[in-house]
């Protein structure tokens, strides 16, 4: 037996790369998809930066993001230290992946109702969908309040306001 092995001469050790490549491709596909979803859902904006924030991590949950979109800006034409110093009007509302006009409360309510009815249920039959309200720091309250009213009208009693975590946000970088 041993002599047979020696007859072949020295063998070069080889790693089997196939499972590694399989896993890596899976990871790439996963991150590409996740990246697309995140980019679609989050509109570019500065969310409020708080004094002594009590924000917590979003964690894993069934969520729908309601974005109140600010006037478009770049990192050059906006004051990084004072995000509130920007155009105060909202140019649109994005619920999940759908766009609405700011004043179109009924359509926003309708979209949220639909999202609630399609969401998975908890054991007690209630919807597990959580609503995140993501609005730019500079937008006036009377532009956002009708959006909150539209969320209320969809029989949603609780929302999560999105703000920066401690030591995050444009001013701290």
């Amino acid at each position: 037996m041993a002599s047979k092995i020696f007859h072949r001469g020295p063998t070069s050790p080889e790693m089997n790369m196939t499972p590694l490549i399989d896993v890596t491709f899976q990871l790439i596909i996963f991150f590409m998809l996740v990246n697309n979803i995140i980019a679609e859902e989050s509109v570019q904006m500065f969310v409020p930066q708080l004094a002594n924030p009590k924000t917590r991590e979003m964690g894993e949950m069934e969520r729908i993001v309601v974005n109140v979109k600010p006037v478009e800006f770049t990192r050059n034409n906006r004051d990084m230290d004072e995000p509130a110093n920007w155009d105060a009007s909202a140019i649109g509302v994005k619920v999940g992946l759908r766009d609405f006009a700011v004043g179109d409360s009924e359509a926003i309510t309708e979209a949220l109702k639909q999202a609630v009815s399609e969401s998975p249920r908890a054991e007690d039959g209630k919807s597990t969908l959580e609503v995140l309200l993501r609005a730019d720091a500079a937008i006036r309250y009377d532009e956002i309040q009708p959006v909150m009213a539209a969320i209320t009208a969809a029989q949603i009693g609780k929302i999560h306001l999105v703000a920066y975590m401690p030591d995050e946000g444009p001013g701290s970088k």
């Binding site: 989050s42 969310v47 924030p53 009590k54 979003m58 309200l133 209320t152 609780k158 929302i159 995050e168």
Partner: peptide, 17 residues
């Protein structure tokens, strides 16, 4: 991408539906 943002849970405005 959206790291650095967190949430505060809030009740909704009163008197609107």
């Amino acid at each position: 991408f959206a790291a650095g943002e967190g949430i505060i849970t809030a009740k909704l405005p009163q008197g609107t539906g």
